[in-house]
Design a binder for these strands. Structure first.
Length: 564
RNA sequence: UGGGGGAUCGUCUAGCGGUAGGACGCCGGCCUUUGGAGCCGGCUACCUAGGUUCGAUUCCUAGUCCCCCAGCCA
């Protein structure tokens, strides 16, 4: 985490105290342990920044990347790849510490036999339904399974037969023998292994029994020598179980589980389950759809790793449930892009302007600054000629009081160019629509010429019609949900999605320099906000993605108010 | 009703017995070679009730509200 923030991070304090006390031999080893069952989103970024950040802050500290791939039915190598890409893109490095829980299956199995031998685990043959009944409820204690007192020998041979594939799915499980009357339901003999005759994306058909999270996770941490095992709040009452497994397995290393509040962002779809549903039902273009809060979506939206990291630093790490406003995320990308993106001129809704007193066929190149906040970004030449496009909105035939831009008889400055005066308006005789404007330019007012510093009320942007290149702009609003927590499980998504989440604007005219812009380059169109070129675009004409701020997104919704 | 957690501006947070600070946001104003940029100013908070104390956001007690847990998911 960056210095200079006053955002809380109680975990950093714990780590510092442990370090000072010489705990864990003065080492800090953290891990980011995703299950490869989906793409990473901004919520994962918080965990990534936390775990990798903690390791970075400590001399000799390291953060592992471990795939928690203990459930063969949900996992896929595609996700393994995308997760690695995203962590790297965010700017973090696991060095050679890339691990897979599935690589520990054999050792985990040996630990299980050890538990059986010491009478700490048994094979249960209840059906899933019966097991639920025996577990009791939140207020009533559970009852012991009739299979709970099987002998060590019987348990051992049953467990070996489970591994050997002698039984179909669901017929037996290995359970920890803890306490069926525990007020903590997680301690009522939790399942350690289940039978799953399914191919695993890495171990293929080598196994038909798979360890459960509560069993595999603490042991994986112990095997890797993790010192601080950081997870989210919902695992708080799993901690006694985490410690129980470590204790029973007698591992030489004892990791420590610490919980923090997961990130929620207002109106963003953040659950993997729901994101998967959106992708599978093709309600979005894919995991990298710019309307999604996935890392890849944010990236296509124009977000930078730096902005995401700054955001994560700012929001802090605490134990209280929190919902961060999306405006805060937007603030960090605006701040970052302001410093680094090149300013260019673009006209979204073109209106042709003819400069009557500018020589026909002539052209000149004018100097334009690339970034007013960063002189090192340099300048570029912008071609100027007799016919230009200006923004339709920058002209009004009958301007109201507060309108200072172009109007008949009125003067305005063209950015980086001259002051022009509107002397005529050409309309379509049929429709009355304004087709073009006739103006005169004042040659003595060329930008930068200080003898002609006449003041005008407004400055507008423009592009030369003969030099401009056409572009398509896609405006992506975030996918808003009226109230995510109220969305029923089997709902119709379309009623909750922002109907105007994607808008295409074609026929835009942009500076010629944008034609060869590399994919993903970021620009700020003067007065119009931030854009990046499409990361996928192989088109000749540029396609831009634009981040639409929430405020504007709301304005486009019916009531113009945040949904509540 | 069992267990585990958590409550400070609208939002995210700082605070560790001594004037409640920052950031986002919002509202004004300025800037006019374009702002959704920049600059200036303003806005609003300690869950409640008792107690301890010269003094409580902080300590104690009793409540209230919110979140999580009854997958052979993670």
């Amino acid at each position: 985490m960056a210095e200079g923030t006053n955002a809380s991070n109680f975990i950093r304090d714990i780590v510092a105290a442990d370090l000072a006390a010489g705990k864990h031999g003065g080492r800090v080893v953290t891990r980011f342990p995703p299950e490869p069952n989906g793409y990473l989103h901004i919520g994962h970024a918080k965990s990534i920044c936390l775990n990798f950040g903690l390791a970075q802050e400590t001399p000799g500290g390291i953060c592992h990347l471990r795939f928690d791939d203990t459930n063969p039915t949900t996992e896929d190598p595609e996700y393994v790849q995308s997760i690695q890409d995203d962590v790297r893109w965010l700017g973090f490095d696991w060095q050679d510490k890339l691990f897979f829980a599935s690589d520990y299956f054999e050792r985990l199995y040996e630990f299980a036999e050890r538990l059986i031998r010491k009478g700490a685990a048994y094979v249960d043959s209840l059906t899933a339904e019966d097991m639920r009944t025996y577990r009791g409820t939140l207020t009533e204690p559970g009852r012991n399974s009739p299979y709970r007192e099987r002998s060590v020998e019987e348990n051992l041979s049953l467990f070996r037969e489970m591994r050997a594939g002698k039984f179909p799915d669901g017929t037996h499980v290995l359970r920890a023998k803890i306490n069926m009357a525990s007020p903590n339901i997680n301690l009522r003999d939790p399942v350690l292994y289940r039978i799953r005759h399914a191919a695993h994306y890495r171990t293929e058909s080598a196994w038909c029994i798979y360890p459960a999270y509560d069993y595999a996770h603490p042991l994986s941490d112990a095997i890797e020598g993790i010192t601080h095992s950081i997870c989210t709040l919902e695992f708080e009452d799993h901690r006694p179980l985490y410690d129980w497994v470590i204790e029973q397995a007698q591992t030489p290393h004892r990791p420590q589980q610490i919980e923090f509040a997961r990130l929620n962002i207002s109106y963003a779809v953040m659950s993997k389950r729901k994101l998967l549903e959106l992708v599978e039902k093709k309600l979005v273009a894919g995991w990298d759809d710019p309307r999604l809060p996935t890392i890849k979506g944010l990236r296509r939206r124009g977000y930078t790793p730096e902005a995401i990291r700054a955001f994560c630093d700012h929001i802090g790490v605490a134990k209280r449930d929190a919902v961060v406003e999306m405006q805060l995320l937007e603030h960090f990308i605006r701040e970052d892009l302001n410093k680094r993106s090149l300013r260019v001129m673009a006209v979204l809704k073109p209106l042709k302007v003819v400069l009557d007193n500018y020589p026909e066929g002539a052209a000149e190149e004018l100097d334009a600054v690339n970034n007013p906040e960063d002189p090192s970004a340099g300048t570029r030449k912008v071609p100027f000629s007799r016919t230009l496009y200006i923004e339709r909105d920058d002209f009004l035939e009958d301007p109201p009081k507060q309108f200072f831009r172009l109007a008949p008889g009125r003067e305005v400055r063209l950015r980086y160019a001259y002051i022009i005066k509107c002397v005529g308006v050409t309309k379509d005789p049929q429709t009355g629509e304004i087709i073009e404007l006739h103006c005169t330019y004042d040659p003595s007012t060329k930008s930068g010429a200080d003898e002609a510093r006449r003041k005008v009320k407004a400055t507008i942007h423009w592009v030369s019609t003969t030099h401009a290149t056409q572009a398509e702009i896609r405006l992506y609003n975030p996918l808003l949900i009226a109230d995510l927590s109220k969305v029923p499980t089997d709902h119709d998504w379309t009623t909750y999605l922002n109907p105007q989440s994607l808008e295409r604007i074609t026929g835009c005219q942009v500076e010629p320099s944008l034609k060869g812009a590399p994919p993903g380059s970021r620009f700020q169109f003067e007065r119009l906000g931030y854009f990046c070129t499409d990361l996928d675009s192989t088109n000749d004409s540029p396609v831009f993605n634009r981040t639409v701020p929430l405020k504007d997104a709301w304005a486009k919704l019916d009531k113009g108010q945040p949904p509540r």
